[in-house]
Design a protein around this nucleic acid. Structure first.
Lengths: 204, 204
DNA sequence: AAAATAGTTGACTGAACGGTTAACTTGAGG
DNA sequence: CCTCAAGTTAACCGTTCAGTCAACTATTTT
C-alpha cells in the first residue's frame, strides 16, 4: 500500500555517522536531512524528535555491528585470543575512521552518551545499554577462559567491566589527543586487568 | 584606573560548573551570563567568544585544583598509597558532586574534550593538556615506587597513561550509567595495571 | 478508475543562538 | 574635584535551531 521509501534508513545511517564525526549537539536536523537527501517534513514523518532519531540510529548501528562482534568473539577462537583480537580490531577500526574523517572519532556510544548523559535520559539509557552489550562479549570470553583454566578464577562480570572501562578510556584519550597510536597494544593491559600472567608485557 | 569588577571570575566559575553539569553545547552564553549576574556585553568585554571562555574557565579550574592534587600526591606519602588515595578521592568527589547536581558528572576535562574534540581545536588542546598534567602526577608516583622497589621496573610514563585511561574510562562509565558505585575499588585495578603484586585484589 | 494508504514537499514558526554596539556609569589617580 | 580609563547596560543583529503543516504525489487495493 502507498509508496515505498528508503528515506528512513538513509536518515538513520547519515545521522549516526554525522554525530559520530562531530557530536550530538554539533549536528542539526537540517544537516542530517540535507546529507540524507530528505526533506525536513519527511524527517518528522518518521521520527518524533531529533533525540528519537538518535536512539533509533544507534540501535540500528548496533544491529549492523553485531555480526562483526559475533565473528570476533567466535567460540572457534580461544577466549583470551578473542580479547587480543578485539583490542587489535579497536585500533584498526579507529585508524580507518581517522583516515576517512580526518580525526580520531572514539567510541560512538561513549561519545554521545557522555555528552548528553545529564540532559537526555533516553539517549543516555541507549548508550548504557549498548556499552553493556559490548561488555557482555568480554565477560563471556573471560568466564570461558576461567573455566578452561587459562585464567585464574574471579568475578568475570566485574573484570569485564574493568577491562571495558579501560578500553573506553583509551578510546576517549585517543579522541582527545587526536592520536590513534594511543590504542596500540591495549591487549597487554587488558590481560593484566583480568589477571592473565604476563607473557609479553612490553611496557605496561 | 577605572572601576574594578569580579565579573570575569564569576563568569569563569559559573561557566565551568554549568558546562560540567550539562555540556558545552548544552549551555548557552545567555545562561552563563544570567547565572553569573553579568550582562552579555560584559561577557564579550572579557572574552572573545564562548570557546575562549571555556578554555579560560578550565585553565582557572586547574589552578584551583592543583593544590589539592599536590596534597594528594605529597612526597610525604608512600607512592603506591598516593595512587590508592587518588582513586578513593575520585570516588568521593564524584559522590559529592552527584549529590549536589543530582547526577554523576564524570571528569570535566574528559567530558568537554570528547564532546568538542572534532570541532574546536583550542578546547580540545586544553583538555588534552589538563589530562596530561593529571597523568604526570600518576607517572611521578609510579616512577618513585619503582625507584624505591615497591614496584618492578617498567616504563612509568606508559603505565601512568594506561592507569589514567582506566580511571577516565571508569568515570565515563559512571556518568553514562549515572551510578557512582562504578567508581568503588578503582585502586586494585590500577595496581594490576602498573604491575603491583595483588595484596587485596578482591574481584578484578 | 476510485479510494485508501504511504510518503513528499518546502515554506513557515517562534524561540534561541552567538555575537555587536553605542551610550552610559563608576571610581581611582593626578 | 576633574578626568578618563575600566566596566556596564540593554537593545539589537542576522542566523540557526527544532519542529509544524496543509497541500501534494505516487502506489496499491478494491
Amino acid at each position: 500500500m502507498g509508496r515505498t521509501s528508503d528515506a528512513k534508513e538513509k536518515l538513520l545511517e547519515v545521522a549516526f555517522h554525522l554525530i559520530w564525526d562531530s557530536s550530538y549537539g554539533g549536528v542539526s536536523v537540517d544537516q542530517i536531512c540535507e546529507r540524507a537527501g530528505v526533506n525536513k517534513g519527511s524527517f518528522y514523518y518518521y521520527f518524533g524528535s531529533k533525540a528519537d532519531l538518535a536512539v533509533a540510529a544507534y540501535d540500528e548501528h548496533w544491529k549492523q555491528r553485531q555480526p562483526e562482534l559475533d565473528r570476533l568473539f567466535s567460540a572457534q577462537i580461544p577466549p583470551l585470543e578473542r580479547l587480543t583480537r578485539w583490542c587489535e580490531s579497536a585500533y584498526e577500526r579507529q585508524k580507518e575512521k581517522a583516515n576517512k574523517f580526518g580525526h580520531v572519532c572514539g567510541c560512538p556510544y561513549a561519545s554521545i552518551g557522555v555528552e548528553v548523559a545529564t540532559q537526555d535520559d533516553k539517549i543516555r539509557a541507549k548508550a548504557e545499554e549498548l556499552i553493556a552489550r559490548g561488555t557482555k562479549y568480554v565477560e563471556t570470553a573471560i568466564a570461558e577462559a576461567q573455566r578452561e583454566g587459562s585464567l585464574p578464577a574471579g568475578d568475570a562480570k566485574q573484570m569485564a567491566q574493568q577491562a571495558y572501562s579501560f578500553v573506553l578510556g583509551a578510546l576517549l584519550r585517543a579522541k582527545i589527543q587526536n592520536d590513534v597510536e594511543v590504542l596500540r597494544d591495549l591487549a597487554p593491559t587488558v590481560m593484566a586487568i583480568i589477571g592473565a600472567k604476563s607473557e609479553t608485557r612490553v611496557a605496561a
